[in-house]
């Protein structure tokens, strides 16, 4: 208000929080954990017709180390749950999780012995997407919701969290 007019067109005043979260929210890199049917709609969301690139999320990295949004797309079984958790642990902070589809959110139509009834039992979920499978538009909306959420976060929010102790693998003591 008035300050900008004094500095001319080259300056803008804002808070650090706003700048960082603005940058963060427009470059959300998803980790596409395509497990079953929803993966096909996730692929469709990336195709030219729906084009997830409009939201800055076209960089689908298949390595968790380079991602900040985990999209769990599909039915998670008990056998798979450990893998999902491991992938979540490998992602650097700050990170967000979309639970895509009825199966990931609540077990969906698979009320059976091998299916986990909702992934929120072992990973924190930010956005649940309804549908079996959700249409690509629905996933895009979820990405926008994540962006809204990121827009409200503060830079300091993620500094105090203790590091998770990862299990040591390939350690041999003979």
């Amino acid at each position: 208000m008035g300050l900008e007019s004094k500095f001319g067109q080259s300056f803008i005043t804002t808070t650090i929080d706003a700048v960082v979260s603005w940058a963060r929210k427009n470059s959300v890199w998803p980790m596409p954990l395509g497990i079953s049917c929803c993966a096909i709609e996730m692929m469709a969301a990336a195709d030219p017709r729906f084009d997830i690139a409009r939201f800055g999320s076209e960089v689908m990295r298949f390595t968790p180390r380079q991602c900040d949004l985990l999209i769990v797309a599909g039915t998670v079984t008990y056998k798979m749950a450990k893998v999902v958790r491991k992938i979540y642990d490998q992602m650097p902070d700050p990170k967000w999780v979309i639970s895509m589809g009825a199966c990931a959110s609540s077990g969906g139509m698979f009320r059976s012995y091998s299916v986990v009834q909702g992934i929120d039992q072992f990973v924190p979920v930010d956005v649940y997407v309804a549908g079996c499978p959700p249409r690509p538009e629905n996933l895009l909306y979820a990405v926008m919701e994540i962006q809204k959420k990121i827009g409200k976060t503060s830079v300091l929010e993620f500094t105090d969290q203790p590091l998770i102790e990862l299990p040591v693998i390939n350690e041999r003591k003979n």
């Binding site: 958790r85 009320r111 012995y113 072992f122």
Partner: peptide, 16 residues
């Protein structure tokens, strides 16, 4: 004789 929803506790989930 195995129930549809399985036997509770027979499969472990990772801790949250």
């Amino acid at each position: 004789d195995f129930p549809l929803m399985g036997i509770p506790g027979s499969l472990q989930l990772p801790k949250r």
